[in-house]
Design a protein around this nucleic acid. Structure first.
Length: 262
DNA sequence: AATCCTGTCAACCGCAACCTA
DNA sequence: GTAGGTTGCGGTTGACAGGAT
């Protein structure tokens, strides 16, 4: 972030481009004083000639405490692969499971290191890949959002009240989520959420139990075939139900997922 | 030594979801 | 119900560094 040597680009009144050390200090002081959030006020409060997005990004990706820099460990890479297989490009969710890593970091790492490996494996491995049976995997795409107190009665996605789901397989062997339209108690719903993850993982493991256990090229093709299922998108909303007010609650379910992954 | 090529990553942009009046 | 404002996400871009030629 501190690349004051670079020539700042400017368009109109709002500064763009790399942040200077001085700007970093101003932003840090502002956040320390007023806390995170209210990003539209941050540029004024901090005395920065930056747009609120730039301020937010600067804080979240670089100035926030405990940001981890440097190479990803094997464990981290393994986890990224597992979660990406499960969640798709939900970088913020994946980053949420990697302490000190930001969504931008994870996304960049995926695009530069992992995606390249997936798309262009070494020639000698291509033949191996072809020989493998390729299975399709559905990707869960929860839409992370913040929820106010008012929002707790709102279904996570805009679908009707979806409360219980099971993973099902139709005749074509495509997995889908069957939504049952009933309203469980809060505890029940959380349990359902855990069950949902459990079922999902069980299904994933059924397809290729060790596909992401060992990061080798001959295991990668199955990761390439990801389909986004809108029904799954609805299904995951089951994880957040009555009495669950936001991602804090959801993270509990993610914790279960985490345990299941390990 | 100069130039080109490629990889990396910080930062920006557009957009959908959400909030509030 | 809705319009305007805000937030956060993911995709993309562009500057820079280092290696190859």
């Amino acid at each position: 972030m501190n690349t004051s040597s670079t020539i700042p680009k400017s368009s109109g009144l709002v500064r763009k481009g790399a942040w200077t050390e001085e700007e970093d200090v101003l932003l840090r002081k502002c956040i320390e004083k007023f806390g995170e959030g209210k990003w539209h006020q941050v540029p004024v409060r901090a005395g920065l000639n930056r747009c609120r997005k730039s301020c937010r990004l600067g804080w979240l990706n670089y100035l926030r405490p405990h940001i981890k820099r440097g190479d990803f460990s094997e464990d981290e890479v393994d986890l990224i692969l597992r979660l990406h297989k499960l969640l798709g490009n939900r970088w913020s969710l994946i980053a949420g499971r990697l302490p000190g890593r930001t969504a931008n970091d994870v996304k960049n790492y995926w695009n530069t290191h992992l995606q390249r490996k997936l798309i262009a494996p070494p020639r000698q491995e291509i033949r191996k890949c072809r020989a493998l049976k390729i299975t399709e995997n559905n990707i869960v795409r929860p839409r992370p959002r913040t929820f106010s107190n008012n929002a707790q009665n709102i279904s996570w996605c805009s679908n009707k009240s979806i409360t219980n789901s099971t993973i099902d397989k139709d005749g074509s062997n495509n997995e889908c989520i069957r939504i049952n339209d009933k309203k469980p108690m809060a505890e029940e719903s959380r349990h359902d959420g855990v069950q949902w993850w459990t079922s999902l993982l069980a299904n994933c493991n059924e397809n290729d139990e060790t596909a992401v256990e060992n990061m080798s090229y001959d295991k990668l093709p199955s990761l390439l075939h990801e389909e986004i299922s809108p029904t799954i998108n609805g299904g995951i909303s089951n994880c957040m139900q009555e009495g669950q007010t936001g991602w804090d609650d959801f993270s509990v379910d993610i914790d279960h997922l985490w345990n299941l992954l390990n």
